[in-house]
Simulated scan of single mutants.
Amino acid sequence: MDADDLAPPPAPAAGFTPRPLDPLSVAELERYIGQLEGEIARARAAIGAKQAVRAGAEALFRR
């Protein structure tokens, strides 16, 4: 038996719990994907806003 066999699977990201997909129909899966894509877009927008604030602060302190 390898040590890898004893290691627990990686924990999901904090705040995210994967849904069981087996009971979902195709239409429900497509709706779920749309929701996830919307959440990804929202997270990317937040990243962009934070990067813009940081860039502004760095520019201010470089003067």
Rank of each mutant, 00 (worst) to 15 (best):
M1P: 01
M1W: 03
M1N: 01
M1R: 04
D2E: 08
A3D: 12
D4E: 13
D5K: 10
L6I: 06
L6E: 06
P8K: 09
P9F: 12
P10Q: 11
P10H: 09
P10T: 11
A11D: 08
P12W: 09
P12L: 07
A13D: 03
A13L: 12
F16D: 01
F16E: 02
T17K: 10
R19I: 14
L21M: 10
L21C: 02
L21Q: 03
D22S: 11
D22Y: 04
P23L: 00
V26K: 02
V26T: 11
A27V: 00
A27H: 00
E28V: 01
L29K: 00
E30M: 06
E30I: 03
R31L: 10
Y32I: 08
Y32C: 15
Y32M: 15
Y32Q: 15
Y32P: 05
I33W: 01
I33E: 07
G34F: 03
G34N: 08
G34H: 04
Q35L: 05
L36W: 07
L36I: 09
L36P: 06
E37A: 07
E37V: 02
E37M: 03
E39D: 10
E39N: 04
I40K: 11
I40R: 10
I40F: 08
I40G: 02
A41E: 08
A41I: 02
A41K: 06
R42E: 13
R42A: 15
A43N: 12
A43V: 14
A45N: 13
A45T: 14
A45H: 14
A45D: 14
A45F: 09
A46G: 14
I47F: 12
G48S: 15
G48Q: 12
G48Y: 11
A49G: 07
A49R: 15
A49K: 14
K50N: 14
Q51T: 04
A52W: 10
A52S: 13
A52I: 08
V53I: 08
R54G: 03
R54L: 07
A55M: 08
A55L: 08
A55T: 08
G56K: 10
G56M: 07
G56F: 05
A57G: 06
A57M: 05
E58V: 11
E58C: 09
A59Q: 05
A59D: 09
L60W: 03
L60D: 14
F61N: 15
F61D: 15
R62P: 06
R62S: 14
R63T: 15
R63V: 11
